[in-house]
Write a protein that binds this DNA or RNA. Structure first.
Length: 297
DNA sequence: AATGCGCACAACCGCCTAAGT
DNA sequence: CACTTAGGCGGTTGTGCGCAT
């Protein structure tokens, strides 16, 4: 049985929105609030698909949108979050008040990719370009469930989780693009994405995800539990907790902070020696000192 | 002035998941 | 438990615009 279309396509407009349509949508949402996108078009007198209305509102009409150019600080935050989260645009957008996932996604594809390439960094793997050729993209947070194997691996020196040392180390059979440490199942050739499904299948309780960054998610305040079910903070590390706080801080709270505050938290919580193109053996003291938290080194 | 090209971004599409029945 | 539905997400496409020739 196929999926029914989200709306009656025969009688819906497509393409660019007119000012009148925008105004109708704005007026309706102002009067009735968001919700029930399926019935909204009819109620608002719009010949549009509900999905289309939702997208238009979220990406363009919402009053709290920032619009305008991204700042350098926002750039850096996006880069850093992308290195951790991969193409989880909605998660990244959640950390940038006033920015939408679509906006960030477009900005990434048109600006930041080029910027990173000009720095000699692979935009997908966040590793130096000359060491990442032909390696598949991989998000950098590990959403695998906690298992004894994982837990054990977390206590080992980190060499290949998330961003590993640039590939001078070919002798290791470990796939450096993997964000997770090697386990029995992951010692096999990496299946194409997404790992999330596997994770969820192996985690019926959906509560034991371990991000290996010791990031946890208080379910009461994060709307993104569906996309990334973070576990509770399991580390006493101040740094990881700071970054956890930053990631999981509601956008409304984050908005109250200055971008530099947010950036500082990221800078504090993440070791970026990898991003600077350090070669093996040149990693900073943080990488060596914080066992199990930074997977970049 | 006309044309071609590349870029930026709004919008669409298909899929997934949670919630409802 | 199976099925349906709405909402949400990420990838991709379409189109308008500016610039170079």
């Amino acid at each position: 049985m196929g999926r029914s279309p989200c709306c009656e396509k025969a009688h819906t407009n497509k393409g660019a929105w007119t000012k009148e349509e925008d105004q109708r949508l704005i007026n309706y949402i102002r009067a009735h609030g968001e919700g029930c996108w399926r019935s909204l078009p009819k109620a608002a007198g719009l010949l549009r698909c509900g999905k289309s209305c939702r997208l238009r509102w979220i990406n363009y009409l919402r009053p709290d949108l920032k619009r305008g150019n991204f700042t350098e600080e926002e750039d850096e935050i996006i880069i850093k979050l992308h290195s951790l989260l991969g193409n989880k645009w909605s998660l990244i957008a959640g950390r940038l008040p006033g920015r939408t996932d679509n906006e960030i996604k477009n900005y990434w594809n048109t600006h930041i990719k080029r910027k990173l390439i000009s720095r000699g960094i692979d935009p997908q793997t966040h590793r130096p370009l000359n060491s990442t050729a032909a390696l598949p993209a991989k998000p950098c947070l590990d959403f695998r469930p906690s298992t004894p194997e994982n837990t054990a691996s977390m206590n080992e020196p980190i060499t290949n989780n998330i961003i590993s040392t640039p590939a001078t180390d070919n002798s290791s059979s470990v796939d450096n693009t993997k964000c997770s440490s090697s386990t029995t199942e992951e010692s096999q050739p990496p299946p194409p994405p997404p790992p999330q499904k596997e994770v969820e299948e192996g985690n019926a309780a959906a509560h034991a995800l371990d991000l290996e960054l010791s990031i946890g998610l208080p379910s009461h305040q994060c709307k993104y539990t569906k996309s990334a079910s973070f576990n509770s903070v399991s580390s006493s590390s101040t740094e990881s907790k700071s970054f956890y706080d930053f990631l999981m801080r509601p956008a409304a709270v984050a908005e109250a902070e200055t971008p530099s505050t947010a950036a500082a938290v990221v800078a504090q919580a993440m070791c970026l020696c990898w991003q600077l193109g350090f070669q093996k053996g040149q990693s900073c003291s943080n990488c060596q000192a914080v066992n199990g938290l930074y997977r970049y080194c």
